[in-house]
Design a protein around this nucleic acid. Sequence first.
DNA 1: TATGCTTAAGCAAACGTTTCCATAAGGAGG
DNA 2: CCTCCTTATGGAAACGTTTGCTTAAGCATA
Lengths: 345, 345
Amino acid sequence: MTVTIKDVARRAGVSPSTVSRVLSGHPRISAETSRKVKSIMEEMGYHPNIMAKSLVSKTTNSICIILPKPAEELFSNLFFMELIRGIVTQASRSGYDVLISSGATEKEELEAVSRLLKGRRVDGAILLYSRKDDAVIDFLKDNGYPFVLVGRSDKYDDILSVDTDNMLAAYDATSHLISMGHERIGFVSGPPNLIVSRDRLEGYRKAMEHNGLELKSEWIVEGEFLQDSGYRAMSFFMNLPSRPTALVVVDDIVSFGVLRGLNELNYTVPADLALVSFNNIPLSELSTPPISSIDIGIYHLGYTASQILIQTIQKQANEPGCTNRFIIPHRLIVRESSMYSPGKK
Amino acid sequence: MTVTIKDVARRAGVSPSTVSRVLSGHPRISAETSRKVKSIMEEMGYHPNIMAKSLVSKTTNSICIILPKPAEELFSNLFFMELIRGIVTQASRSGYDVLISSGATEKEELEAVSRLLKGRRVDGAILLYSRKDDAVIDFLKDNGYPFVLVGRSDKYDDILSVDTDNMLAAYDATSHLISMGHERIGFVSGPPNLIVSRDRLEGYRKAMEHNGLELKSEWIVEGEFLQDSGYRAMSFFMNLPSRPTALVVVDDIVSFGVLRGLNELNYTVPADLALVSFNNIPLSELSTPPISSIDIGIYHLGYTASQILIQTIQKQANEPGCTNRFIIPHRLIVRESSMYSPGKK
DNA sequence: TATGCTTAAGCAAACGTTTCCATAAGGAGG
DNA sequence: CCTCCTTATGGAAACGTTTGCTTAAGCATA
């Protein structure tokens, strides 16, 4: 039924080894044989069996993306699609296939990963935004599997990772508001177990301190990466006796929730409350008003993660002393939501 | 290094075949042997080599998703992420892995598909929204590979597909506007080579005709699934001497563009122009005003596609006479963007 | 007691590659 | 003319499974 290397060999009057060598561009194959075998492969419609190849070479030319545990919430985010797009594009350029894996629980997730890696179905893994203490990282590290973390681990600093400098990004976002004349600035954070939430919070704190501004604990609220969290944060802030005049918000989606709430209460942005958030998803510029956002180059993050992982798998970049933390630069996109100086009121 | 079936066999004092049979739950294995082998597998940390298994069983327990050619544009859409999420969730429940594949050009795409299927890396494929004339469909059909199309083919009606009844959906959307009292209704379409664009256009036409309303060709504009297209369509419509009072828009993203444009020109929705669009992405309800949209159950589409594909692969549902076109029901979500009756002006 | 059936397990081939080792032919050097 | 090296190719083992065929033992039946 399917045509194998042996069929080609028989038809070409050579041995299977020769065909295999033609396939892999072995130097000691005569030009003539190579030409003949290739034309016969073409003619017979030969396609190498990837499984057989993998079995003997112990390499699969594929990697997997491990989606974070609460995939149901986060997955539907534009953010992840963009990341995946970057990964898939780069991997495909390097001749690698990409497998998507997710599990409902941490246990399931670990099972999936261990099945894929131990079962030798993939050569390495890309982890998207791990929690503070991540069993999957421990698993990968303990077993010496190649992997790259998109994000940052606070437990290990010797693992390969691609990340935004979230502390600096939050520092920049906050500084921007301060430079616009804001002094009472609040912060809407994400789940406290995500490192990204903590880093951004820290950057906000530093910026406030460096500028000698008061850091009220009631001006910091935690939530999820969901619009509802923004909605709730907004009502909390607006009911405060002493309210902030501006907000740094941990994610654009959350900003949408804030915006909707303010809208319902007939407040206007940025006059009543200025906003800056993170990730610059395509819709940030479409909302009314458009939201100022820190663009973190999501596609680029994914692209780079894939590149580094594949290099590692191919052992091209394993020189000790090499850097293992790659920072993708961010930049602030100023839009209407932060174009207001409270001093000029 | 890695522990194989033979290692387990040796340690358990049985033959490799016996271990294999324990693994697959063969009936003729004594309870005692099974227990012993299982405990030894556990103890030694045995994981089956998926490649070896695939090689002999000629089955990979994985499927691939083929993203449409202009992936760069469409990929970043919430829409695709939601679809993928449905597919991955279902596949994972059925014990299947999911591979994502995309190509920059149609040729690359075809190469990728043929490598995956002919190379026996996957058992089947899910195609997302093909063009009118799709070489990939021909390839899959000609070679008899199991595949499911999310969307509709106008060339073949005997291929497995999961789809929205887009004609009916557009009919419903248009009827809704008509029932609100609109008579001058325009249509913003997508790329004319996408079947979904044509079906929705057709549904709009039918609804207009059935209600005896005038169908002006200048009230139909084509574009991409991009906000820019909406923006352009809006300026076209608003400069018309006789403008529509309502628009049916082929995708929510496009509606965002319309909305932004109207906003800039200080028109209000729905008073100056009512809107209904399709797909009901999460942000539709967050815009100002929230957009009425046809929810087509994207996750459900993906989930069902995966289910059907895997059933087909496993030959469980191959009885002839079975339906091969699965329709996922849609429903109209009415929001502020269409809550206005022009008659009551 | 001989026969046949059932159950539990082993042997070995097969899946489609890659790759180490061997070999044959041709040419250069002595 | 013999030896040795180079170049092109073939043979066969190995990768880790699954599975059809075989075998051995235990037991019931005639």
